[in-house]
């Protein structure tokens, strides 16, 4: 398998605090990789570094063979990486359709964009029903679906989902994971950051476990799921508390 995303000894610092220390991570073409770990493990720092939002203190990020470590935020998506940020961050004052249009900002094919909006609507019927509503009027689960749909509008080769189940009711979490399974079946490569380890492991091919900014384990999803040690030490939280609130 060829590496689509290749992160080499990446470190991220916020002032004197090292949020991420020398982490290696590879996502192969067509693979689903879960990035697990407790709160404050550095998961979002790693995603932010990939997305170009925070600079790397050491190491670099390669995508499709090219070094993308120093690219500006707006250039990352042009290379084919679409990030669905933590907390969804849909454009609150824009309608659902406008959110999707902005998700296709890098594309010039108007007809293709219109077709993809329709395609998204058939995949997310709830969004079609709310097409002309402002995004802020959507529920948390609907906003998460909109955020994912918006990410798909750029036709990414790699979709990075940061905590897609955070703060959602269990029923909605199931819907989100069903949706992600559908995307996987369509052959989309994904890097999924999750605190909800149980759900993520049932769905991913491989997993990395971060703790205190370091990668403490990496292996196939089955290995991680069967390692009582790992679960007890780092993922206990995630397995015990499948998101409580909406």
């Amino acid at each position: 398998m060829t590496a689509l995303l290749d992160v080499r000894s990446a470190s991220v610092r916020y002032g004197a605090i090292a949020a991420l220390r020398n982490v290696d991570l590879v996502v192969g073409e067509g693979e689903i990789v879960a990035l697990l770990g407790p709160n404050g493990a550095g998961k979002t720092s790693l995603v932010s570094a990939i997305a170009g939002i925070v600079p790397l203190a050491t190491g670099d990020v390669h995508f499709d063979g090219a070094n993308i470590s120093n690219l500006a935020v707006e250039d990352i998506v042009r290379r084919g990486i679409s990030v669905t940020p933590e907390g969804r961050r849909v454009f609150a004052d824009l309608t659902v359709t406008e959110n999707l249009q902005l998700g296709a900002a890098i594309r010039a094919d108007r007809q293709g964009v219109a077709d993809d909006i329709e395609r998204n609507f058939s995949m997310f019927p709830i969004l079609k029903a709310r097409a002309r509503s402002e995004a802020k009027t959507l529920s948390g689960g609907e906003q998460q679906m909109l955020a994912i749909a918006r990410s798909l509008m750029s036709k990414p080769r790699l979709l990075v989902l940061d905590e897609p189940s955070l703060g959602l009711a269990p029923k909605i979490v199931d819907q989100i994971f069903e949706l992600m399974a559908k995307l996987r079946d369509e052959g989309l490569t994904m890097l999924v950051v999750e605190q909800n380890a149980a759900e993520a492991l049932s769905f991913a091919d491989r997993a990395y476990v971060l703790n205190s900014g370091e990668c403490v384990y990496s292996g196939t999803a089955a290995e991680v799921a069967n390692s009582d040690d790992l679960i007890a030490h780092y993922l206990g939280d995630g397995i015990a508390t499948t998101a409580l609130t909406d």
């Binding site: 935020v73 998506v77 940020p85 961050r89 454009f91 609150a92 004052d93 902005l102 890098i106 750029s154």
Partner: peptide, 24 residues
Amino acid sequence: TQIGLAMRAAAKDFVTVRMMGVRA
């Protein structure tokens, strides 16, 4: 217009607008 949508969205959350590939 696309740039108009981006301006409205940037009023609330510029970083996410840039993540969509819109040049600041």
